[in-house]
Design a protein around this nucleic acid. Sequence first.
DNA 1: ATCAGTGTTGACCAACTGGTCAAGATTTAT
DNA 2: ATAAATCTTGACCAGTTGGTCAACACTGAT
Lengths: 211, 211
Amino acid sequence: MTNKDAARADTRIQREKKARILDAALQTFSAQGFRGATLDQIAEEAGMSKPNVLYYFRSKEDMHRALLNQLLEAWLDPLRDINPEGDPLQEILKYILRKLDMARQQPRESRLFANEILQGAPRINDVLISALKTLVDEKATVIRDWIKAGRIAGCDPHHLIFSIWATTQHYADFDTQIIAVLGPDDVENRFDEAAKFLTGFYERSLKPVNN
Amino acid sequence: MTNKDAARADTRIQREKKARILDAALQTFSAQGFRGATLDQIAEEAGMSKPNVLYYFRSKEDMHRALLNQLLEAWLDPLRDINPEGDPLQEILKYILRKLDMARQQPRESRLFANEILQGAPRINDVLISALKTLVDEKATVIRDWIKAGRIAGCDPHHLIFSIWATTQHYADFDTQIIAVLGPDDVENRFDEAAKFLTGFYERSLKPVNN
DNA sequence: ATCAGTGTTGACCAACTGGTCAAGATTTAT
DNA sequence: ATAAATCTTGACCAGTTGGTCAACACTGAT
């Protein structure tokens, strides 16, 4: 008996094709921006015809929305996992390294997000001011408590989080510049070097003064 | 007697109109990206007709090139001004605050640059691997010498510079997100708070260990 | 085997886009 | 005043783009 509800489960072909299209769309959007990407490019990248792409996603908008929704989940996870009961410095360093790892493993997602924010976040601003703000405020409180308890050095928790976003995502979003500046000799290790640098840097800066 | 050379100086009207067009183009490119911006938008923003815009700049490409050239100059200046003879910590903090001030005063320029790098720097990659790399390497050597002399804490100079770029430009490029997360109460002071945070942060992290 | 549902695409369309052009309006030097 | 040079724009064009559609091909449950 087939599922007759409105939200019928995807068939095998639907799952495979949708995944292939989203991957192609991610590739294209992250490299060209929403407006810069064309359906022809996405179809080409996905290895199918343009009408076929539009059979699975009603519009270019739809693909973009799907990608952003999918992305936002994964994006907030590491922050969500900061454990108020854990060791402050370890929790923050773990968060940094996890964000850096995402920049290494998922640079396309990072660039997609960067593109969206750069354009003024027209499609996700409501998520930013609701879900993201709530989560950040919650973690900022945790950090503020750690500071009050003298377990890490004092600083504005919000701006601490911003600095972590900035320094980690930078390695995905500005990769072209980093490759250009480091030159062929130092390029390969760049993420390991970044991990080393950021670890030492945040360690020194967050170590409580009276310790 | 009028200048009959090939490179005739611009008339008053030419200077004014070119400036107005470049300002409109900066506004549009930084908000929409190169491909997302249209000549109609730029013309509208500049308050003139599209053919009139194209009378002063041969093509959309031309405007973009002009903006990037103009930008790259100002972009490298603060780094260039780091003084090897100055106090290490003061020089670095001065650099940070100057970059942060540029993010505050010239967010459009920062976003234009970010857009270009995000797309893989197709139009300025050669500048990055030549002029920028040379300058960064030179300043990295200065910083390395400071470290060797025990005047600041040890860390990879290149990644230190990357972190400064990241943390400062973040306040321009990701302003939408920052506004969303901070909420109405803390938005107004965000750049002052950022300055305070970054100063304290880099001070603690760069202070030599044995001092 | 069959056939209803699902998947696929070439051909097409209207809107948009970067850019041209000829014809007029304005400025400038004399 | 006037004519050369500069400036301005409506009308236009060819190429691109997101999206549609009718016709055809495939799949899988019976």
